[in-house]
Design a protein around this nucleic acid. Sequence first.
DNA 1: AACTCGGGGCA
DNA 2: TGCCCAGAGTT
Length: 212
Amino acid sequence: MYKNLGKIIEYFSKKYPKPETALKFMTPFQLLIATIMSAQTTDVQVNKVTEKLFNKFEKAEDFAKLSYEELEKEIKSIGLYKNKSKYIIESSKMIINKYSNEVPKSREKLMNLPGVGRKTANVVLANAFKQNTIAVDTHVFRVANRLGIVNTDKTDQVEKTLMEVVPENYWSKFHHWLIFHGREVCKARNPYCQGCTLKSYCKYYQNQIKGG
DNA sequence: AACTCGGGGCA
DNA sequence: TGCCCAGAGTT
């Protein structure tokens, strides 16, 4: 058991009493598409395009009909739009043809869709299907390593260890907490260690002050 | 294991 | 205006 976890949970519970997904939840299909789009960009950028996009195109059939070029125009502002347009359209086709027009509810099947890796699959499982998972994005990965809750460069190992160490009823909250903390305080570059309440529990900070 | 895809935000 | 940020697929 990671010894500072109680303190960390206590701090986050106060600071973020009711953490929620930044991606606006719609249908499971739309959440899947929004999550595919969110790779290598921010939820803010994705939310800028989804309202208009889902107003024009609602269901898998609507996306399956589009040409790559048509969809590229709609989502250009999120970047990596050629890949993502292809992933979205091909995933839509696969959902229709292979999964009876239902977003699959298993991780294996979700990860079989183009553009869906483990992080995206876990986000969909957690938010669309209320399965208890910890999706490991770059924030979760970085913050968990810095705090010293995990010590690994393997994403799958971060997920595994967090699920072992964090009480199950906190998995979803913990996921959001590390993301918020990673964005606002424990940033990839120039983290605000001085103002961070968790610094006395943080391996990264302790190493910083030791190193000078 | 390294490379590719690409825009927005910010110093 | 150039650097940094954020996942998945391919080679």
